[in-house]
Design a protein around this nucleic acid. Structure first.
Length: 582
DNA sequence: GCCGTTTTCGGCCCGACTGTTTTCAGTCG
């Protein structure tokens, strides 16, 4: 059993923290950057290491020889010698301790040396006993903060789902909207980039009266506690999430929005791009520092050439505007410099939904009701894809082949009367061996066959999904990895291999728009498109209001550089029908 | 440890806030 990218990435993050604790310079950053790229890599890194060795792993951005060798070492032996040595040198639960707000690797190192603190429990006891404030560099305030923040850390807060964080941000912005001092107000950070999970909510506010805005943030009814509140930023907690608010000068709003949207890697690359051109980018603007002796002498040094509008920041650097979803340091700066950024699809490009459920299986509305709602949305077509019975279908949910055949007749009748095209389909189970849970004779009669994995969702699923892709009766692979965010990681799949086969067989790979899934994710979409595969963006709606989830799917596909041409359900109905028939 | 229209060695983004300091280190984003 190969280890997941997430597991590998965590090992290198741990190593980074441990080196950081010992004041080692630069290596921690190198390990963290590599870890990030390992986590986002669309194929299984451990499998790559196992079959193709050190050199193949080095194709991952920011992974050089040393890290590649450690990956191979871990895959072969289950251990990384360097990490084991570091664990021995500093025998502490570094992930647990640094999960406390305000406690970083350096503090962990200091507290271990001074007090022998190894675990969260040790930290709590020491704080309660007043031991922390006796350590040089720590005081009463720090000790009190640790005690308070430890409670929050113990709740093992994970990253929040995008679908949960977005409503929180919307609520805050509605609250601020009624405040006179508040000008423009936008989300920033990973929320604006539509990452599937969010570390914290970032909100940016333009105002000439920052103090009034900070007050307004503090008076937001949802606030549970205030982490910090200065003259230009305030951080609060609500519903287990940290919300960071920053107030900026309206003339600098665009630069600040660019800066706080990130990602970190994107901004590093953007800054380097600027430095190469005698320019300086920071949260206050783009400055021409070519005639300045010391570009680092102050925040607003040189002649400001952009600042109030975000697109100007990019244009001033000779780049076309980079959409937030693309800002992950995956080649977008080079593409923007060359004028080769994709023309990303938008919500308006979506013409139908190819994967939804009704009361015939586990949905809550009738076929007629779902069709009416799709018509109301302005869609041109809708695929009815109720579950077929099979493993993974809890409580006997799902239609037998006989029931599907009778539903098929109903759908055809409805299609004749409906204003939009109604495709007859099914969501069939892809068994662990790749077999499909519905008979071939029936599949042949259906317009749209979605095959999805529903059980045995661990280990490598590449061969299983390849079997389904190569089945000529399967049109769409639904939620390919089967992941549930924050609950299960799902199947490991080699996205490029799968996508190449999908392109060859005219099988679409789904971006399941349910915010608990978002499966495929952005980097896998990008790998799929690079391999020439077609994407489908489906909501998997079990009631009509869930059609709204399509927005999450669209933005996830945009993170994968998708254009409308890449997406099956951005095409007119005849093209979709032709795709099903191929 | 990584990386290269400045380079295979010498750099590595930048700033706010806090708490502990008395000029700065650590943390965070």
């Amino acid at each position: 059993m190969t280890s997941s990218n997430d597991e590998l990435a965590s090992l290198f993050e741990e190593l980074a923290d441990r080196l950081d604790a010992q004041d080692v310079a630069y290596k921690p950053t190198a390990y963290r950057r590599a870890a990030e790229n390992i986590r986002e890599f669309p194929d299984t890194v451990a499998a790559l290491a196992e079959t193709d060795g050190v050199e193949a792993v080095q194709q991952i951005d920011r992974v050089g020889e040393a890290i590649a060798e450690k990956i191979v070492e871990y895959v072969e032996t289950g251990e990384i010698e360097e990490l084991d040595a570091q664990r021995e040198a500093l025998p502490v639960d570094i992930a647990g301790l640094t999960s406390v707000e305000g406690v970083g690797p350096k503090s962990v190192g200091t507290l271990y040396s001074a007090l022998g603190i190894e675990t969260l429990a040790d930290l709590e006891t020491a704080a309660e006993d007043g031991q922390i404030q006796t350590v040089s560099g720590f005081g009463q305030k720090t000790e009190a903060n640790i005690l308070e923040n430890i409670e929050f850390a113990k709740r093992a807060q994970q990253r929040q789902l995008l679908g949960e964080a977005l409503p929180i941000a919307t609520d805050l912005m509605a609250h601020l909207d009624g405040i006179g001092a508040v000008g423009r107000c936008e989300t920033a950070g990973s929320l604006r980039r539509w990452r599937e999970t969010i570390g914290d909510v970032d909100v940016l506010i333009a105002s000439d009266e920052p103090a009034a805005v900070i007050d307004a943030v503090e008076s937001w009814p949802a606030v549970e506690s205030i982490i910090e509140a200065g003259s230009q930023k305030a951080s609060v907690r609500t519903a287990g999430v940290r919300v960071d608010c920053r107030v900026v000068d309206p003339a600098e709003f665009g630069a600040a929005l660019q800066y706080f949207t990130g990602s970190k890697e994107h901004n590093v690359q953007l800054r380097n791009h600027a430095i190469d051109r005698g320019l300086k980018v920071n949260e206050y603007g783009v400055f021409d520092v070519s005639a300045i002796d010391d570009p680092d002498d102050g925040q607003r040094v040189g002649e400001r050439i952009a600042g109030s509008a975000e697109p100007d920041v990019y244009n001033a650097l000779g780049l076309s505007y980079v959409e937030p979803e693309l800002r992950e340091g995956r080649g977008e700066i080079e593409a923007a410099a060359a004028g080769e950024l994709p023309n990303l699809l938008t919500l308006d490009d979506i013409r139908g939904d190819l994967h939804i459920h009704t009361t015939s299986s586990d949905g809550t509305e009738s076929i007629e009701s779902m069709v009416a709602a799709a018509t109301e949305r302005g869609y041109d077509y809708l695929s009815i894809t109720d579950h077929a019975t099979g493993p993974g279908m809890v409580g006997g949910v799902g239609l037998t082949d006989d029931e599907l055949e009778s539903q098929l007749a109903t759908i055809h009748e409805l299609d004749d009367d409906a204003a939009i095209t109604v495709f007859a389909g099914v969501e069939a189970n892809i068994h662990a061996d790749g077999e499909i849970s519905v008979g071939d004779e029936l599949l042949e009669q259906l317009d749209c066959v979605v095959g999805s994995p529903h059980a045995a969702l661990d280990g490598d699923g590449t061969d299983r999904l390849l079997a389904a892709v190569n089945n000529p009766l399967v049109d769409v692979i639904g939620h390919p990895t089967g992941r549930l965010l924050g609950q299960r990681s799902g199947l490991d799949i080699d996205s490029s291999t799968l996508a190449t086969a999908a392109a060859d067989t005219d099988t679409a790979l789904e971006v399941n728009a349910n915010p608990r899934r978002l499966d495929l994710d952005g980097s896998r979409v990008q790998a799929a498109i690079d391999a020439g595969a077609t994407i489908a963006i489906n909501t998997d709606a079990h009631r009509s209001e869930r059609f709204d989830y399509v927005n999450y799917g669209v933005h996830t596909a945009r993170r994968g550089w998708a254009q409308s041409d890449d997406v099956l359900n951005c095409q007119p109905v005849d093209a979709v029908r032709a795709f099903f028939d191929r």
